[in-house]
């Protein structure tokens, strides 16, 4: 069962296609990292998921409910942390959370308990009666995170959640995402911080120019990338390496006479090993250099731009 189903989503701003026929499914309990350069259409997709932007075409279902036909059923079970937003500055931290909690069917004691729990979790309990306008950006971001969790959501949608946060704040956000994931919640988050996506995500989607350029687990994406871009095979032997001349090799980069990097169209480690053993050369190391997410991301963007 999918927690999020996006089907053929298209949104234009004038002549510009912000999102172009996006189709994407996110399984329940998955932490999905939504990657893309600025202007790729990540925020437009997220805002469409909440009904804040009305797409030109396409369908979005969250937890089985159509976002535009049954918005209340969706919003009751979703928590959202927007990018570049602020809380109500003239309200205290407590009053801000109370205002957001009032939209849910909770009795007073339940509400107060939840607010207390969240303020303690994000480290704002001691300043709960201070107006939000006196808070630093990091404190406001933590309060924003608390409001996203006020209804103990089944699906958490986070738009650039660590943007502008200090390392401590970023660590807190990441640990909360991990905790929510452990509880079996679905987390959909956009980010341009690749290490963060690599650390948190079970599945990744790369959006470029409104189109989904890659989708899958990190391993899948890297594999897809290598199949498309070629394999980078590191080789080190005890003796001097011979010339490599067989099918599948794109080029060979020699580091010294015993070390080299072979760029190949396929995983040809077995052939290399056989070839070298026939020539009585002992191998010390023969491994595939996996591309980092950064390599995949940058090449995906450049390919689009190129």
């Amino acid at each position: 069962m999918y927690a999020i189903e996006i089907e053929n989503l298209t949104k234009k701003y004038g002549e510009l296609k912000a999102v172009d026929g996006l189709t994407l499914n996110v399984e329940k309990g998955c932490v999905f990292g939504f990657l893309g350069p600025n202007g790729a259409g990540k925020t437009t997709t997220i805002l469409s998921m909440l009904g804040l932007i009305i797409p030109d075409s396409g369908n979005i279902r969250i937890l089985g409910h159509d976002v535009f036909r049954e918005p209340i059923k969706v919003k009751e079970r979703v928590g959202y942390l927007p990018e570049n937003a602020t809380v109500y500055d003239e309200l205290t931290a407590w009053r801000n959370l109370e205002f957001f909690a009032n939209f849910y069917d909770m009795d007073r004691s339940e509400k107060e308990k939840r607010i207390e729990e969240l303020l303690k979790m994000v480290g704002l309990w001691d300043v709960r009666y201070r107006k939000a306008k006196t808070f630093s950006k990091g404190m406001k971001q933590r309060l924003l995170l608390a409001q996203a969790l006020i209804n103990d959501p089944e699906v958490l949608i986070l738009d650039e959640p660590t943007s502008g946060l200090d390392p401590e704040g970023a660590h807190l956000v990441k640990s909360i995402v991990k905790e929510e994931a452990e509880k079996g919640k679905t987390v959909f988050f956009s980010s341009h911080i690749l290490s963060e996506v690599e650390e948190l995500s079970d599945k990744v989607g790369i959006l470029v120019g409104g189109r989904l350029k890659a989708l899958g687990t990190l391993e899948d994406i890297k594999k897809q990338f290598m199949e498309l871009e070629g394999y980078e095979i590191k080789i080190e032997a005890k003796q001097a390496l011979p010339e490599f001349e067989f099918d599948g090799i794109i080029r060979v980069e020699r580091i010294n006479e015993r070390k080299a990097i072979i760029f190949a169209r396929d995983d040809i480690r077995e052939q290399i090993s056989d070839y070298l053993s026939k020539k009585d050369i002992t191998l010390i190391n023969l491994e595939i250099e996996e591309p980092s997410l950064e390599d995949v991301f940058l090449k995906t963007i450049y390919k689009k731009e190129g």
């Binding site: 909440l50 959202y80 809380v87 500055d89 957001f100 924003l144």
Partner: peptide
Amino acid sequence: QEGTIKLTLSKPLY
């Protein structure tokens, strides 16, 4: 401009 509308309208209300 302040983004508070996104917070409020992400809650269960029309």
